[in-house]
Design a binder for these strands. Structure first.
Length: 244
DNA sequence: GCGACAG
DNA sequence: ATCTTGTCGC
């Protein structure tokens, strides 16, 4: 219907972006102080929700990010944008954000309208240092964010019940920093945590509102399909690692 | 000391 | 994340 053509932007690694693990850890410590966790966040089913995801070609050092905005009530696509650029950091468990954030921000900025709540593909607070990708994106954009990961990370969770909506806590000490949430009956759960300006309860409510049919949120599904297509198209222009 | 480890 | 065929099911 009103599905816009995806706007394509060029992403680049910002000046002063961390190049070592030690520098990245220091940035996490610095940004973590800016997290806002005492807000309920926007209610599910209203306004807009934007999913972000990235695809890589590590051999060529290229990353493509996609941001897809949906009407929260109907889940219809209202805006799409992609950003292609250089990979900003190697993959290090716990430092994923340094790899994806530059391209993700470029895609979000290229959207035709306000993103609303941002759903990230990965963890938020349920992170060894309580500052996963969703927190990072939230602090840098000022937008409410949640993290929905497909696989368990460093925090173990008991298996949730078998029905849609059943969940089990992800604990960091005594604190519940995330949940293994069953979005489809009898199907492997997803791992939800708050990123910025959202409560864990609300993050789970949004996740359920976005999964009327599949295990993963509609936002993530759309963004995943778009960034893969964008990466392919961006690579089609250049055959391979040429002699430059 | 040796693995495991979001994407 | 990515490399990969066929196959079972709606």
């Amino acid at each position: 219907m009103t599905d816009t053509q995806a706007v394509t932007a060029a992403a680049r690694v910002p000046e002063g972006w961390p190049t070592t693990e030690a520098a990245a850890l220091a940035v996490q410590d610095e940004l973590r102080a800016l997290l806002v966790l005492d807000r309920e966040g926007p209610p599910p089913g209203e306004g807009r929700v934007t999913g972000v995801d990235v695809a890589y070609d590590d051999a060529r050092g290229v990353v493509a990010a996609a941001a897809v905005t949906l009407d929260a009530a109907t889940l219809a696509v209202t805006g799409r944008a992609v950003a292609v650029g250089p990979v900003a950091f190697p993959y290090v468990p716990g430092l994923l954000a340094f790899r994806e954030v530059p391209a993700v921000l470029a895609a979000l900025e290229a959207l035709p309208g306000p993103p609303g709540l941002v759903v990230c593909d990965g963890y938020g607070l349920a992170h060894p240092r309580r500052f996963g990708l969703a927190c990072h994106v939230g602090v840098l954009t000022g937008l409410p964010t949640v993290g929905v990961a497909k696989n368990p990370f460093v925090l173990a969770a008991d298996p949730p019940g078998p029905r849609r909506g059943d969940h089990a806590p992800l604990r960091l000490g005594e604190e519940e920093v995330g949940r293994a949430l069953r979005t489809r009956a009898g199907v492997k759960p997803v791992f939800v945590s708050a990123g910025h300006l959202v409560s864990l309860d609300n993050a789970c409510a949004h996740t359920l509102a976005l999964t009327p049919r599949y295990r993963l949120p509609e936002t993530t599904r759309h963004a995943d399909a778009l960034c893969r297509r964008a990466l392919k198209e961006a690579l089609a222009g250049r055959p391979a690692t040429t002699t430059d």
